[in-house]
């Protein structure tokens, strides 16, 4: 029983004579329902308040100080916001995060859509096998995947060996500023497309088959069916994947930490890694700077999500 249930249930108790039914008892019941509802959401509200809201408010307060663990913190107002905004490395890290997101999110969605469409055509048993296979990378630890790909990208690794068969010299995948981020994007896509595929498959299975049958009878080809039926009806799913994909991709941390440590020349220095690297410096400046940079990243991620919501208008519901 939730607050929503209680609201839905109320009109189903009509008064036979037009008078308010059970006039004296209703407020008491409403009060009880509300109390139950508040009690049920209370744990989450308390947890959110303790672990999200209070730290956020306290962080905002602390960001106005140069924090020292041994001397009195020095009030500096909004100085650190100015320092972060003026920091070329902060903005470069945002661009690196966006570039990584552009490399991985659309590619991942296209691959996942193709795979989901393929799985939809398979028999139940084959589809079940394919779903398990596709989902497998999602349960592989990012650390393990990072180490595997580091070995694969070595001068004498399997990737350069394959290039050697095609008569191409070894490529310096992880130590060349132009190749490093795309090289990291490959395990990034590999790790995430399993989940994306399953979500898209669920969306595809929700589209009634008779839409496609009608379209085929009207002479619609594959691309017409794709762009007129499939994609419009997957709009909400795609929006979800885009928003979560972009925000997660920009916050990438483990892959560049293990594979390149943000290098070469900051080419894979994603925002979170940059903030982490700043925090590891032992000066009071670094502590306050990394705290403020985290708050700024929060604002940047919010702005990016807003832009995506604006670009792709969400529909509340499309009747299947």
């Amino acid at each position: 029983m939730t607050a929503l249930d209680s609201r839905v249930a109320a009109p189903a108790d009509p008064a036979p004579d037009g008078a308010p039914p059970h006039g004296r008892r209703r407020p008491a019941r409403h009060g009880r329902d509300n109390r139950t509802a508040y009690l049920m959401i209370a744990p989450m509200v308390v947890l959110l308040a303790v672990f999200v809201m209070w730290p956020l408010v306290y962080s905002l307060y602390l960001s106005t100080f140069k924090i020292s663990f041994y001397t009195e913190p020095e009030f500096v107002g909004l100085d650190f916001y100015q320092y972060v905004l003026e920091s070329p490395r902060f903005w470069e890290s945002i661009w690196v995060g966006l570039y990584y997101a552009v490399l991985t999110v659309p590619t991942g969605i296209v691959i996942a859509l193709l795979l989901a469409s393929f799985i939809k055509t398979l028999s139940r048993r084959a589809a079940s096998y394919m779903k398990t296979t596709v989902y497998l990378p999602a349960v592989v630890s990012t650390v393990v995947a990072s180490v595997l790909f580091v070995f694969m990208y070595q001068d004498d690794g399997v990737v350069n060996a394959m290039l050697g068969v095609l008569n191409h010299g070894p490529v310096n995948w992880l130590n060349d500023p132009s190749y490093a981020l795309p090289a990291i994007a490959v395990p990034g896509i590999w790790l995430s497309f399993g989940v994306t595929t399953l979500i898209l498959l669920a969306g595809l299975l929700d589209i009634p088959e008779n839409y496609y049958e009608s379209a085929q009878l009207d002479g619609a080809g594959f691309f017409q069916r794709l762009f007129r039926i499939t994609i419009p009806l997957l709009k909400n799913v795609l929006l979800y994947l885009l928003v979560t994909g972009f925000t997660l991709a920009i916050q990438l941390f483990e892959l560049p930490l293990i594979m390149t440590n943000g290098g070469p020349v900051d080419a894979t220095m994603t925002p979170n890694l940059y903030i982490f690297a700043s925090f590891r410096d032992l000066t009071p400046y670094a502590t306050s700077f990394s705290l403020t940079a985290s708050l700024m990243l929060f604002a940047v991620l919010g702005a990016i999500s807003l832009v995506i919501f604006r670009l792709v208008n969400s529909d509340k519901a499309i009747d299947g």
Partner: peptide, 18 residues
Amino acid sequence: PWDISLAFGTAIESAMKG
């Protein structure tokens, strides 16, 4: 502070790797 050493180290790396 380490930031100074890192800035110079990054300059060397930048020149090395073109």
